[in-house]
């Protein structure tokens, strides 16, 4: 009984992860400019990875394999925002213009500023 419940949960997580991966991919194609595409990439980097890794972890229970899966998830979740930020920052310095809503403040006034070491 319990085994069935775990299996069902695992299948649900795996398939959800797959679906969100495809949705993120579609976002990567459909969003109109570079900065909004970053959000599409973010979907595949976060929920897709989390769901798939937890789905797989449920399959192997408490073991060395699960520990390594969790380490993979930890590395992914630590490196993904860093890489995304590096990309966004580079594009911003390189004067890639975002498509913005009319009411929004513009990006140009921040361009001259530098990321200080905090």
């Amino acid at each position: 009984m319990l085994e069935w419940a775990i299996n069902l949960a695992s299948w649900f997580l795996l398939l959800t992860g797959g679906v969100f991966g495809v949705i993120g991919g579609i976002g990567l194609i459909r969003f109109p400019d570079f900065y909004s595409r970053l959000h599409g990439a973010g979907v595949t980097d976060t929920l897709c990875a989390i769901c798939i890794v937890f789905g797989l972890a449920l399959q192997s229970g408490i073991s060395l394999l699960t520990l390594k899966l969790m380490l993979i998830l930890l590395f992914l979740l630590f490196t993904a925002p860093t890489a995304t930020h590096a990309l966004a920052r580079a594009a911003m310095v390189d004067e890639v213009e975002p498509l913005l809503d009319e009411q929004s403040e513009s990006l140009a006034k921040h361009r001259g500023e530098r990321s200080s070491s905090i």
Binding site: G17, G18, L28, F34, L38, D45, T84
Partner: peptide, 29 residues
Amino acid sequence: MAVFTTMALALARALKGPTIYDRIVAVNV
């Protein structure tokens, strides 16, 4: 298969560009 589909979509974005940063985002995904 779903993850492969995502990879194919990312590859499509990497080929389309238009800026170099779009390509790098796609390769990252």
